[in-house]
């Protein structure tokens, strides 16, 4: 019974050793490439250009003969190690602060070039920093400020400038380092401190001017409205007056027609008007002294009394 257990034990140990050694051997002859990786087999120091870099498990020779180099195959966003925000001069000598970013990855067709010349992400970033900085300086120096920021759609050229930066970086990066630059863009565009202060001042002045203009236009508008009102008034009154004059003239004309009646007997008319005027003239402060020559007081005159036998009467 003890030999049976012994046998069992030894079988078990053998199996265990077998499994462990199998795993070890497998690790010598196979390598796995993760979905996010590139891998290059290096045979005796010589990179195998045709080695399969797709994700999955691949065969290789054991270690001292074959070594495997891995690198991230995903694209990375990078804006430079130093001088991410850098003061740059435009063509028309205006200092601007610009930050350019790129997205880059190892060029799938030039993995070996990348491995030979760059090897690590850190190295790549270092090299790309220089490339970004020099390109940024070059390209921005070729364009005037108004091409970056402008309300005029015909003058502004920001997209073109970004494309230019992209083209230059992409060409150099691919040629020199086996890096594929997928895009480049300006993610910050600002002005240095003292220029900013000037811009602030100008903005304030501009706002003040705007405010003054608005106030002035308010005054102008108000004056216009008032003047308009005055004109309107004059117009209304003059119209009314003119109309009144017309009405009066018409009235006079009509009156004239009536007066022609009077002309038929001027003597009577003048008598009647005199009489009318007399009536109007006599008012409360008038002393009316009637002697016997004036009718009806002539009734008291001696001649009349003589004529009449009957006693005369006096009326109040």
């Amino acid at each position: 019974m003890s030999t049976e257990t012994e046998k069992k034990k030894s079988k078990f140990v053998v199996a265990l050793i077998a499994i462990v050694s199998l795993i070890f051997i497998a690790s010598l002859f196979f390598y796995t490439v993760e979905e996010n990786q590139y891998a290059v087999v290096i045979r005796l120091g010589e990179p195998q250009i045709e080695s399969d870099t797709s994700p999955g498990i691949h065969a290789k020779l054991p270690y001292p003969i074959d070594d495997v180099w891995y690198h991230d195959r995903r694209a990375m966003v990078f804006a430079g190690n130093s001088g991410e925000l850098e003061e740059v001069l435009t063509k028309d000598k205006i200092n601007v602060i610009v930050s350019v970013y790129i997205t880059w990855r190892v060029d799938p067709n030039q993995v070996v070039t990348f491995m030979n010349r760059v090897k690590t992400t850190e190295n790549a970033q270092e090299k790309l920093t220089d490339l970004i900085r020099s390109t940024k300086n070059n390209v921005i120096g070729r364009h005037s400020f108004s091409e970056f920021i402008n309300a005029n759609q015909d003058i502004i050229n920001l997209q073109e400038i970004q494309d230019e930066i992209y083209r230059e970086i992409a060409a150099d990066a691919q040629e020199l380092f086996g890096i594929e630059v997928r895009s480049a863009g300006i993610q910050h565009f600002g002005l240095p401190e003292n220029t900013s202060q000037k811009v602030f001042e100008r903005m304030r002045a501009e706002r003040k001017r705007e405010a003054d203009t608005i106030r002035a236009s308010g005054r102008a508008e108000s004056s216009r409205i008032k003047a308009e009102a005055d004109t309107k008034r004059a117009e209304i009154i003059s119209t009314a007056r003119a109309e009144a004059t017309t009405i009066r003239a018409q009235a006079d004309k009509l009156a004239n027609q009536s007066y022609q009646e009077f002309a038929k007997d001027p003597e009577l008319a003048s008598f009647l008007f005199e009489l009318e005027a007399l009536e109007k003239m006599l008012n409360k402060d008038t002393y009316l002294i009637l002697d016997t020559t004036t009718p009806p007081m002539n009734l008291f005159s001696e001649e009349y009394l003589k004529k009449m036998t009957a006693p005369a009467e006096e009326g109040k």
Partner: peptide
């Protein structure tokens, strides 16, 4: 008509001359 207005002072002079 005038005579009806009391405010007008009226003097009757029954002589030929004034």
């Amino acid at each position: 008509k005038i005579s009806e207005d009391e405010k007008i002072r009226k003097f009757a002079v029954a002589a030929k001359s004034g």
